[in-house]
Simulated assay, not measured.
Amino acid sequence: MADLHETLPHVTAFPGALGGGILVHTATAVTPAVHAGLASIIEGVESALSRFRPDSLVSQIAHAPYGGRFTFPDWTAAMFECYDGLAHATGGRVDPCIGEDLVRLGYSASFDCIADGAASDAMRAPARSSWTRDIKREGTTLVTHGPVRLDFGACGKGLCVDLLAAALTASLAAAAGDGPAFAIDAGGDITVRGPNPPAAIALEDPHDVRLAIGVAHIADASLCASAPSQRHWRDAAGNRVHHLLNALTGAPADDVAATWVRVPAAGAAYPTMLADGLATALFVTDPGRLAAAFPIFDCLVLDEAGHLKTSARFPAELYTAVPERPM
């Protein structure tokens, strides 16, 4: 993130958090007590939602031969509701039950490929389970009838950022005067609160991560990006595959190269979670259809042919050809 070092000079790092690490930018140094509180939030999210931790609730569901009742923390209620909305708006193309397909494609903690050809079969096979059909939800309790591999990657990291932002807001409010100023950077998921002028955030070129296609200017909002450039590998047949799947086919989406979504902090209770989920949904669903269900967001979509679509209010300066307006 650019232009934050002067306004938010103190950086607190959580290396390896959620797989890629988290940086917290603040105007004053974070106290040990606040640091411990933030670390506890990250641990709580990972212990509930991580697909790679054997002790997580998600792993318990995946290895329950007869299913069962699994009660998640209260903060997951909003995430489950968000998945309900995304599943409906995308016609089932966004579904946390893609975990089964990700495993068959070879997406492990180390991105190891499956060596027996099962990955190629996953390019054709539908998801084994459906969030809306096979999972019964009672508040934050999920009821299953057999093993289900869930992957909450579309919204989980964004939700963690929002939980961290809420904790920082509460801890910094007393000393903030006009309001707390901070930024949280969890890789592709960023929330910025307070800095003036807005933070300038580079929009990474998905075809060359050393370059940017433009700069977004973000203040009191969340910006989430999604692209296969950082998470792709080869399956057993040598095909390039990635983690952004169409849940109806179980195969990676191949029409979109990258997406960026901005949600105002005041526009949603969990703006980063919503932006995170929508950035994934844009790989498999037209922006106009999503805008009808979630009118609060602005976005930029780059397809594999190099064409750009952007909503009129997306706050970016682009270095490429003039995009289509409106979506």
Rank of each mutant, 00 (worst) to 15 (best):
M1H: 09
D3F: 02
D3P: 06
E6C: 02
H10I: 08
T12A: 09
T12Y: 11
F14W: 15
G19E: 08
L23C: 07
H25G: 01
A27I: 04
A27P: 09
A29G: 15
V30G: 05
P32L: 06
V34R: 10
V34K: 12
L38A: 04
A39D: 15
G44N: 12
V45E: 04
V45I: 02
A48L: 03
A48Q: 04
V58H: 01
Y66V: 11
Y66L: 13
Y66K: 14
Y66R: 13
G67I: 04
G67Q: 04
F72D: 10
G85D: 12
A87S: 14
H88V: 13
G92W: 06
R93Q: 09
V94R: 03
V94L: 05
P96K: 02
L102I: 01
A109P: 10
I114G: 13
D121Q: 07
M123K: 12
A125E: 13
A127N: 09
R128S: 12
R128C: 08
T132P: 00
T132I: 11
R137S: 15
R137G: 15
E138Y: 07
T140G: 00
T141M: 15
L142S: 09
H145L: 10
L150C: 09
F152M: 10
F152E: 05
C155F: 01
K157A: 00
C160S: 06
L163V: 02
A167Q: 15
T169C: 06
A173E: 01
I184T: 05
G188Y: 12
G188I: 05
T191Q: 11
P195W: 07
I201K: 12
V215H: 09
V215F: 08
I218S: 11
A219S: 10
A221Q: 01
S222Y: 00
C224V: 11
A227V: 01
R231W: 09
R231V: 11
W233S: 07
R234S: 14
G238W: 10
V241E: 09
H242P: 02
H243R: 02
L245M: 10
T249R: 01
G250N: 00
A253D: 04
A257Q: 06
A258K: 12
T259A: 06
W260C: 00
V261H: 11
R262W: 00
R262Q: 14
P264L: 02
P264I: 04
Y270V: 05
M273K: 01
A275Y: 07
A275E: 08
D276K: 06
G277A: 04
T280W: 12
A292H: 13
P295N: 03
I296C: 15
F297R: 02
V301W: 02
D303A: 01
K309H: 12
R313C: 12
A316R: 03
Y319T: 15
R325I: 08
M327K: 02
